[in-house]
């Protein structure tokens, strides 16, 4: 098994763990972090699969760089929404927190 494939498999596991974290009930902050783990897993699969042949493929690398920056922006927006949800005056946050 090549190193690239190993990266891809770890990425698939990270994606699954993140997806489980999003699906399980919990505080919004924990779900946002889980969503980030999911995103990192997807990016790792993309980069890992591209370098199975040994060389580095610049096209997925550039796409992943784009993806990381978009993920940062999406996370910040999610945090702003989560904080607005918990702010005084907002309607009660989702009741399934445990």
């Amino acid at each position: 098994m090549s190193t690239g494939m190993l990266f891809a498999l770890v990425g698939a596991l990270l994606f699954t763990m993140g997806a489980a974290g999003v699906a399980l009930p919990g505080a919004p902050l924990r779900r946002i972090v889980a969503f980030n783990v999911m995103g990192s897993g997807a990016l790792l699969v993309l980069v890992g699969l591209a370098q199975r042949g040994g060389g580095v493929d610049p096209v997925p690398q550039a796409m992943v760089l784009t993806g990381i920056v978009v993920a940062v922006a999406a996370t910040a927006l999610a945090l702003a929404l989560a904080r607005r949800l918990g702010a005084p005056g907002a309607r009660a946050a989702s009741g399934d927190d445990d």
């Binding site: 891809a8 699969l49 060389g55 610049p58 096209v59």
Partner: peptide, 12 residues
């Protein structure tokens, strides 16, 4: 993932 065919030349 394990069932994927071997990588081709691709874009590099």
């Amino acid at each position: 993932l394990l069932g994927l065919p071997a990588p081709g030349a691709g874009l590099p």
